[in-house]
Amino acid sequence: MSKPIVQLKNVTKIIKGKTLIDNVSLELFPGQITGFLGPNGAGKTTTIRLMTGLMHLSSGTITIEGTSITDDYEKAIANVGVIVENPEMYKYMSGYKNLLHFSRMHKGVTKERIDEVVEQVGLSKRINEKVSTYSLGMRQRLGLAQALLHDPKFLILDEPTNGLDPAGIREFRTYLRKIAVENNVSIFVSSHLLSEIELMCDRVAVIQNGKLIDERMIQSDEMTRMKLKAEPADLVENYLSSNDYVFTTHDGIFLLELKEDKVPGLINELVAQQVQIFAISAVHETLEEQFLQMTGGGQIV
């Protein structure tokens, strides 16, 4: 695994005696989209505000590309693109003027770069109109444009699909995936929607009551569950148990843990044993189920 671009170490935030964020440590890597999941009020937005310097740490450190945001904020934040909740723009100015405004706050963002980003997010036609005339979807895209202006290596998005329609969400997802892969950008996306994180992210960190309770890869290909329908049942069961497979059986259907690349081998073996195979398929375990597992069925979302 490559070196982390962002490191949170024992991050704690206490406001008026209340511990909002409790000793959170997390690493984020280039080219990876990390989902940040938790119910409303769990501390997602607070964590993001701490990472972007909008709030000050009570204790702990946050480093971005090796620079601590407390020691040298300007250097640390230079490589970060941010959308915190709804991207609030200056509604009384055009989209272009808004981008021009933010471009002046970064080094080396040219007019050509602004045009390029506008093109990328598909706002070319309406960019000279006032933001107050934009739909929510267009504002989100303008928000993405301002976050991408300076070609950041790390993108922080807080609830980025709030208010987007399904087509917009899909487009947004594809786009994020594209910049993560092509530009090796590390992306940190918070959301309270399981399904959204599941579709968008490689990895997920779960926060509950200010504490990071789990961190794992999504759809890891290490162990997948396979559903096997084959006869005769006793023959299959014998073979599986004598070969140390982990499985359960129910009504002639076997559920076993198996890596995908081991599937053809198993089929060959079973066929050699005169077993009739009717179907074999991967059981897609939803993130929701994984969560129930990791929290022991406790309420998360």
Binding site: G53, E85, M89, K91, M105, H106, K107
Partner: peptide, 14 residues
């Protein structure tokens, strides 16, 4: 009040 402050402060400017 407009919420634009968070866009303004998350920049490499003190």
């Amino acid at each position: 009040t407009d919420g634009t402050i968070k866009m303004l402060l998350t920049r490499p400017v003190s």
